[in-house]
């Protein structure tokens, strides 16, 4: 086996999806998903329930056969080299899936056996997994009786026993309390620091900030991809300004449909305006409003939250879909 297949075969990208599509009957759950994840990158998969995150991850792991498209993971083709792919990935399914009737140690030993962890390293890796999950002293506890956060960390521990270069984590933090969620993300970053590539899905927007890059997915389609700050800067398609003015209603009317203005909306007692990039900025905006007899206070450039960007992109997706 090639010592470093990921690099030789794919120029460093640990995960490549090319036009991945999954249809269930006439329903398209994932629609031509294409993306590349670099080695050591933490890629967030963000989207509401039913967006197609799990189906995409399952296709990448070889658990679900794509209707169309292809993918490679850790340098192996998912369609034709599924065994090799499975040896090089760690996977946590969305539903908790360790054996509840077995103890912490028995679960770890089972997965170590299944992944053929070398006998000489078995003890060390199991110990590491136990301490990583914070389960010291609980090795003989039945897993079913553990609390959510511990279960999830143990599941991660089981998924990385064989030191896979690529990790797929499907909503690993759902239903876990915030403190435990933060701890979980610390673990992901530790792994990334050691070169592990991670694709992690979540529907918590705040977790997007923990990712190197995020892929926004909605109704099976990839709607945007980039680092969190890139998306906040460019995701709206222009610059966002927050302005104080009155009356708000008249201001909104004055800006709607005006050249260079992409979007305007009332946001509390202020106005949020998206100005086409390259168009004149704040001064032109103020001038236009004053021309309509509106009192203008401060105008300052601001960044949208990821949630704003997502809502914006989804709304745009809807429009183009209804028009086209």
């Amino acid at each position: 086996m090639n010592a470093n297949p990921a690099e030789s075969a794919t120029g460093g990208d640990a995960v490549i999806a090319d036009g991945l599509t999954k249809r269930f009957g006439t329903f398209t759950a994932v629609d031509r998903l294409s993306m590349r994840i670099a080695r050591g990158e933490v890629m967030g998969f963000i989207g509401p329930n039913g967006a197609g995150k799990s189906t995409s991850i399952r296709m990448l792991c070889g658990l679900v056969e794509p209707s169309e498209g292809r993918a490679s993971v850790a340098g192996f083709d998912v369609g034709s080299q599924s065994q090799e792919v499975r040896e090089h990935i760690g996977y946590m399914s969305q539903k908790f899936s360790l054996y509840g009737d077995l103890t912490v140690r028995e679960n770890l030993r089972f997965f170590a056996g299944i992944y053929r962890v070398p006998a000489g390293e078995l003890a060390g890796r199991m110990e590491y997994a136990v301490s990583m999950a914070g389960l010291e002293g609980q090795e003989n506890t039945r897993v079913a009786t553990l609390a959510g956060g511990w279960k999830q960390r143990l599941a991660l521990g089981c998924a990385i026993l064989h030191r896979p270069p690529v990790l797929f984590l499907d909503e690993p933090t759902s239903g876990v309390e915030p403190e435990a969620r933060r701890r979980f993300w610390d673990l992901i970053h530790d792994l990334a620091a050691n070169g592990v590539t991670t694709l992690v899905s979540t529907h918590y927007m705040d977790e997007a900030e923990y990712c190197n890059r995020i892929a926004l997915i909605d109704r099976g389609k990839l709607v945007a991809m980039g680092s969190p700050s890139e998306l906040r800067q460019r995701g709206l398609g222009g610059a966002l300004y927050e302005l104080e003015c009155s009356p708000l209603g008249a201001a909104l009317e004055a800006l709607h449909g005006a050249p260079g203005i992409l979007e305007a909306a009332i946001f509390g007692d202020r106005l949020h305006v998206v100005v086409e990039s390259g168009a004149a900025g704040a001064p032109a905006l103020a001038e236009r409003l004053r021309g309509h007899g509106i009192a203008v206070g401060t105008i300052r450039p601001t960044l949208p939250t990821l949630e704003d960007v997502f809502v914006h992109l989804v709304a745009r997706g809807l429009e183009t879909r209804t028009i086209g």
Partner: peptide, 14 residues
């Protein structure tokens, strides 16, 4: 039923 199968088939077990 318990969801353990999804985990199991993601491993190299044949």
């Amino acid at each position: 039923e318990r969801g353990t199968m999804e985990q199991l088939i993601s491993t190299p077990v044949t």
